[in-house]
Design a protein around this nucleic acid. Structure first.
Lengths: 336, 336
DNA sequence: AGTGGTATCGATACCGGTATCGGTATCATG
DNA sequence: CATGATACCGATACCGGTATCGATACCACT
């Protein structure tokens, strides 16, 4: 275990005090050009790269931003993280991530653990946290951005959209396109509160038009293409008379269309399929699947932006709410 | 900005010295049961949750593990991260992530920045780093695990498999299944060195059988289903006589099959499609696409495991190399 | 010469923990 | 009763930076 280079080493090599070295490396004023050059040269020479731990402790503010997502298996969240990571590039801030696996207890533990790194801010998913978690977050007194959802009261800032409305809107669009015999297929609804909200909104729209929900099939566990296939099969064997299936997301819908293509079920002529998210996978079946395209990356970027702004400003997000509504694409249905 | 609770507050509330409080919270011995209880109660009471910065600085070892991946858009990497995150759960270690966007300069900057958090270990993607980055990593003197690849000389430990061999193997399998007229479709090959290695291995197998590569189409930028569609279209219009297309990964292959299904090209009877990774999306087309299924999650878990082991042990990984070979599935081709 | 302003720098006190070591108190043992 | 072992506890010195404030040098101006 060789000893790491410290600021004192740099200072010694440059022939200045460690305070001057510190200032030079951080680009502060009050240092002569000459000293700056000497220090930078010395740092490069000996391969010095600082110690964020000490710096953060001393200045009592760490350049870390915590990002908490429910899962990484669902591409949506990596995309949000990607947006965060992108927005943070070059700012000196480093993202730290945690995965809750849709478990509120784990979420509490993860956030607690993150807070002990004294991050400059936190980006978390959704508005539903346990009381203990909320208390923790409020007590932390740092900018918090809740993402993906805005159906409810955010703790602080919030970037997302209403899932209830998203479900409602696509139902309205499908109804407007002439569909009347609906089925709903979902997975992980007990834990995925946002998926459940979309379902609520969807059902509300049906109700308003006095349309019944003819079939409903659900599966536990994370969504996947396989699950989508199975749900579609179950749905269409049980209710062959449907003219539209709303899946809780695009993964399931993609599984659905694979099943339909193989079974010779005409999509969307015989049965329309609708999903949610606007994933890349939808593009594999151009025009076949209706979906609400969400701006995941933009959400991540906006969330990071809010935190950066707050940190540079007065430390408060001002309770900003940024709504990035999904845009509905009906595909081939449109022409009907 | 309210003042955060510190160990001194806990100690005061518990009526002990901060040293005793520290020991109690960390579950060290040399503290009476009575004191432990009082301290824990006091900590809970005032909502204390520690300061990893101070702890790490003091003990000069942070419970952070850096994870560097080239992109989050490719589901493979989130899955590796998921494995890491899973393996780290409950250990007190927190993953920090960085995205290089397949850019070696960014990789250098990200690793440099990570090292200044004094992580306990680093998990990075691939074996190709710039000289400067290698120097940095070696100088850091912490366990390093390079993942996904093992075609080359690892810096320290390594978890992955040979991409050259993976390309070679699937080519051999396809040839054994009777295919002779091959095309190759790839994207991002200038930056995705592992994709390029698979291509190399693939071509080598063809050469060994005196089979020509009839068509080759490539696209810049990250792989996606859309790109796969376009490449398939380009390939099949240019070379309608192919009986097998090898895509640089499953995203592209999925785009390819979408195109074929729509064009009425029989897969795999007329043209076999092969990809790489064994993504979920492949399951949407059961049996249609040949692929090499890689163990991404397991790779992440193994990498994290090596670091944990090293940290708990003598600090060295012992240069472990774990090979997790992909398994080839030919699907419907198998029966031919 | 005396005064004030600016540029540059360093000594010192922290940040909030942990490592270390020495000091009591208690108890078993010879 | 002396001795040593053990359990428990706290004072102190760090970890490697940054904030703060005072010191010094140099210049312009009255």
């Amino acid at each position: 275990m060789k000893k790491r280079k410290t600021l004192v080493d740099v200072a010694a090599a440059a022939g200045v005090s460690k305070m001057t070295a510190s200032r030079a490396l951080r680009g502060e004023k009050d240092v002569s050009k000459e000293s700056v050059e000497r220090v930078l040269a010395a740092a490069r020479e000996i391969g010095y790269y600082g110690n964020h731990l000490a710096a953060s402790l001393s200045s009592s503010s760490a350049e870390l931003i915590g990002v908490v997502v429910p899962a990484l298996a669902n591409v949506v969240f990596p995309e949000v993280m990607s947006g965060v990571s992108h927005a943070l590039r070059g700012t000196g801030f480093q993202p730290v991530f945690g995965v809750t696996e849709y478990d509120t207890e784990k979420e509490y533990e993860i956030i607690r653990s993150m807070l002990s790194w004294r991050p400059a801010g936190l980006i978390i998913t959704g508005l539903e946290q346990t009381e203990a978690t909320r208390k923790l977050l409020i007590g932390a007194d740092i900018p918090i951005v809740q993402t993906m959802d805005c159906d409810g009261t955010p703790l602080d800032a919030c970037v997302g959209f209403s899932h209830t409305k998203a479900g409602y809107d696509i139902a309205m669009a499908l109804i407007a396109a002439g569909r009347t015999r609906f089925g709903y297929a979902g997975s992980n609804l007990d834990k995925d509160t946002r998926g459940a909200k979309r379902r609520e909104g969807f059902l509300k729209a049906l109700q308003e038009h006095d349309l019944p929900l003819i079939g409903e099939v659900t599966a536990p566990g994370l969504s996947s293409i396989q699950t989508g296939r199975k749900l579609a099969e179950e749905m269409l064997t049980g209710h062959p008379d449907l003219d539209c299936i709303y899946f809780s997301n695009d993964d399931l819908a993609a599984g659905g269309i694979c099943y339909c293509l193989e079974q010779g079920v005409a999509v969307p002529d015989q049965v329309a399929l609708a999903g949610f998210n606007g994933l890349d996978i939808i593009e594999g079946f151009p025009g076949r699947i209706a979906t609400s395209r969400t701006a995941r990356r933009a959400i991540g970027e906006a969330a990071a932006g809010i935190i950066l702004e707050a940190v540079k400003g007065n430390g408060s997000t001002g309770g900003q709410r940024i709504i990035l509504e999904p845009s509905i694409t009906l595909g081939a249905l449109e022409k009907n």
